[in-house]
């Protein structure tokens, strides 16, 4: 007597197996949609932008003619803005993370700060622009200056860096800390000389990634008044300034088609800077990755 009727099984499961195969292909195809879109975007930008991309484009100031326009002011402005944002956010962000991970007691207040940081990370960037407009531009009377933009961006980046630094600090194993205490080190000595160095690669990677996010931010800087036509590089914190995304936005908005090619060239420069920053972050992560 045959216990298993193969034909019957085939008949019954054939449809289900086929369904599985169909959906496997479908799932794979939808995954590729994102990738196809990414390559289309890059292809489009590269083919449009390379024509305008030359040394003059990088070293020129804005101009009324597409051929003479350049991104120099934006490039330098973006870098200067990051020079303000980086130290502020690293000091305050890492300080906050150390407090939350090493010092804070598990109580309501700590939970409140933690939840608050989580929610801040979800606030649309343009709302930070409104905050900067009221406080930095008008209340503190900084006007549309580099420092007002820098402080606004710092507040925007801060929650992201805190979360990244917290993760890095949490990854430092307890026995390293206990060994330090066992040698008679105080809490702060342990944090400063043992925990921080161990967490530093993680913190740096997280910081660079959030800064690269900030370099591409446009909306809050439009609100706090980054200008579009700047013919000199900022020479003080109270100078007017512009950044790359603002210039790209401005070029994109012009009706003549020629300007779109200029915008594409600007996008290539912006993406190159982002790529460099990400490469540095990955390099740091791989080079200094701690193995515990």
């Amino acid at each position: 007597m045959q216990l298993i009727n193969h034909q019957n099984i085939q008949k019954r499961s054939g449809g289900r197996v086929l369904l599985n195969k169909v959906f496997k292909v479908l799932f794979f195809l939808s995954t590729t949609v994102g990738l196809i879109f990414l390559s289309m975007l890059l292809y489009r930008v590269l083919t449009q932008g390379t024509g305008h991309l030359n040394w003059d484009f990088i070293t020129n100031f804005p101009a009324p003619y597409p051929d003479k326009a350049g991104i120099f002011a934006g490039l330098i402005g973006s870098l200067m803005l990051m020079a303000i944002v980086a130290p502020i956010t690293i000091i305050i962000g890492v300080g906050t993370a150390i407090y939350l991970e090493e010092y804070a007691r598990k109580n309501r207040f700590t939970n409140f700060i933690q939840a608050n940081i989580q929610n801040l990370a979800g606030v649309p960037s343009i709302v930070f622009g409104l905050l900067g407009l009221t406080f930095f531009v008008y209340l503190f009377q900084m006007g549309y200056t580099l420092i007002a933009g820098g402080l606004t961006m710092s507040l925007l980046v801060l929650p992201v860096i805190v979360v990244a630094a917290q993760e890095a600090l949490r990854a430092v194993p307890n026995d390293v800390k206990e060994a330090s205490y066992g040698m008679g080190a105080s809490k702060w000595q342990t944090v400063l000389r043992v925990v921080l160095p161990a967490a530093l690669p993680g913190i740096l990677t997280g910081t660079i990634l959030s800064l690269s996010r900030a370099i591409g931010e446009t909306a809050p800087l439009i609100i706090v008044g980054a200008a579009t036509a700047i013919y000199s590089i900022p020479d003080s914190l109270l100078s007017k300034y512009t950044v790359m995304p603002i210039q790209i936005y401005n070029w994109t908005g012009r009706p003549q088609e020629e300007w779109q090619l200029v915008a594409a060239a600007g996008i290539i420069v912006l993406l190159t800077v982002l790529l460099l920053m990400n490469a540095i972050a990955v390099w740091i992560r791989n080079k200094f990755q701690n193995r515990y």
């Binding site: 975007l41 930008v45 996010r213 370099i215 591409g216 936005y249 994109t252 996008i267 982002l274």
Partner: peptide, 14 residues
């Protein structure tokens, strides 16, 4: 990680 201004450019011109 691509800046939103780049997406905007792409939406408008492509």
């Amino acid at each position: 990680g691509i800046p939103t201004v780049v997406y905007g450019f792409f939406a408008l011109t492509f």
